[in-house]
């Protein structure tokens, strides 16, 4: 039996987990940190009872204006209440201050990063995740697998809500995101299709969002 001092190539699982914080643990969902989405069906479906923190959440809406951002608002409110900052990176339109205020988000905790191109948006999102943001919402059209992996690693190093909004064609490729959802409008409701969820099972259901939009 080798003495503990000798240079042994044997590495324990615990050591590995300590050295490689991004190593995925089989029972990880047992210690999952989540923030409630405040949509009952969704919280019931998601492992840990809400949006997972510290993993990339990929949302693929069929078009703009179907409630894709309203979906995040209650969680964002919870995060700002905890004194943390929120960043919207390269959103497709101007984030309208009166609407965010109506959703009871303190504007002082909201940052709009208007990156000039997709590449800079991805860079900024990664910096923000690594720099202690409470939530980072990124809109990206060109992110490839490599970018997504980088973002996933940045998300894992954080305790942040990390959303990436991507266009419909991206569904043709697999994604390293911990949670992946397709969003589709259906008869005035929002159909949520959970395509991939770490520690859970794919499923789909309908959500009703408030008619105008944003009151929670």
């Amino acid at each position: 039996m080798p003495s503990p001092e000798s240079a042994s190539p044997v590495v324990t699982v615990q050591q590995l987990l300590q050295e490689l914080p991004h190593l995925w643990r089989g029972r990880e969902h047992g210690t999952l940190i989540t923030v409630r989405s405040s949509f009952e069906e969704l919280d019931r479906t998601l492992p840990g009872g809400g949006w997972p923190l510290g993993t990339l959440v990929e949302l693929v809406p069929h078009c703009d204006g179907i409630g894709e951002l309203s979906l995040a608002l209650p969680a964002l409110k919870t995060i700002t209440r905890a004194g943390r900052q929120i960043a919207l990176v390269r959103p497709p339109y101007v984030p309208y201050a009166p609407a965010f205020r109506r959703a009871d988000l303190p504007l002082g905790r909201l940052v709009w990063v208007a990156a000039a191109n997709d590449h800079e948006g991805l860079w900024a999102a990664e910096q923000l995740l690594r720099g202690g943001a409470g939530a980072v919402l990124l809109w990206s059209t060109d992110a490839d697998d490599r970018h997504l992996r980088r973002l996933q690693l940045a998300a894992e190093s954080s305790q942040a809500l990390a959303f990436i909004y991507r266009p419909l064609p991206s569904l043709r490729h697999a994604s390293p995101a911990g949670l992946r959802m397709e969003l589709e409008p259906r008869d005035g409701l929002l159909r949520l299709k959970v395509l991939k969820v770490r520690g859970g099972h794919p499923c789909e259901f309908l959500l009703s969002l408030p008619p105008g939009g944003n009151r929670q």
Partner: peptide, 23 residues
């Protein structure tokens, strides 16, 4: 730290890229 981070983003993305909203 957050302020320092935003300054870094500004330095790379441009002065007007990092925005705060108000009413």
């Amino acid at each position: 730290d957050w302020t320092v981070l935003l300054d870094r983003l500004r330095a790379r993305l441009g002065e007007t890229a990092v925005r705060r909203l108000g009413l």
